[in-house]
């Protein structure tokens, strides 16, 4: 089953995958037992000339126990699943580790726009630069993103990272990931966002820190040049 998943590429992907497997095993056992009972009873007690049906209305707690006890066991496993799952959610969505890199992500009909703070590490300064449908992050670094949307709901979806977060216009949602495998990953939009929903896709490039620095440098130079050009035009 796990080989259906895209190869895990983030620090928390493994936790989510393991949780999926754990739940599948737990509910799978109950599923198989219930299906087995359904099929077995249907075949074992099919109508014959000889046997009459038993009269079992199960009006007493004692006889209801045949159903209630298995359900109590299910309740127990439900609580176990809740207990096992809560820390994973907590890790992915409720905590925000210290950022190595920061990036602003904006969904819009129908593209992802990424804003980098530039060399000074601060947003809304002159050295910010923007990319459309392309995002670069260094390997093994905590990337904290500030997600928003320009128009309608979108959903940032990186299957390889096991990352999904809706982008909501008017709200800024912080999230994080730490990519642990180099590669180029697709970033579709997972929330219906109109005509071009299918075509909304960015590429996330996870690269070694040195390559990333170099890329960053080239980008800031272009950004600076563009900025200078822009000023000259105005002047």
């Amino acid at each position: 089953m796990l080989n259906w998943f895209p190869e895990a590429a983030s620090s928390y992907a493994g936790d989510i995958d393991r949780l999926f497997v754990f739940i599948t095993v737990v509910v799978g056992v109950f599923f198989l037992l219930a299906e087995a009972a359904l099929v077995f009873f249907s075949l074992r007690y099919r109508r014959t000339e000889k046997r009459k049906a038993a009269y079992i209305p199960a009006r007493t707690l004692r006889s209801m126990a045949w159903v209630l006890v298995p359900c109590a066991v299910i309740l127990g496993f439900d609580l176990v699943i809740d207990a096992v799952a809560a820390p994973v959610w907590n890790e992915v969505k409720q905590t925000l580790p210290a950022a190595d890199e920061r990036v602003r992500i904006q969904g819009e009909q129908w593209a992802w726009r990424f804003t980098y703070p530039g060399p000074d590490g601060l947003f809304d300064t002159e050295d910010d630069f923007q990319l459309v449908n392309e995002m670069h992050v260094p390997l093994d670094a905590v990337v904290v993103f500030e997600l928003t949307s320009k128009d309608v709901l979108h959903s940032l979806w990186v299957p390889a990272l096991r990352l999904k977060q809706d982008a909501v216009p008017g709200r800024m949602i912080r999230g994080w990931f730490k990519a642990t495998r180099e590669g180029r990953y697709e970033v579709p939009c997972a929330e219906i966002c109109g005509l071009g929903h299918t075509l909304m896709k960015a590429i996330l490039v996870v690269e070694p820190p040195e390559t990333y620095r170099e890329w960053l440098r080239s980008k800031t130079q272009t950004a600076a040049r563009a900025e200078v050009g822009h000023r000259e035009e105005q002047g």
Binding site: F20, V27, F31, V88, W89, V92, S155
Partner: peptide, 23 residues
């Protein structure tokens, strides 16, 4: 229905839902 029922547990678990939501 049993299969629909048990897979609801996957979706109802927030951490797993991060992955399977809207798929």
């Amino acid at each position: 229905f049993l299969l629909g029922g048990v897979t609801g547990i996957h979706n109802g678990t927030p951490a797993v839902d991060i992955y399977v939501h809207d798929t």
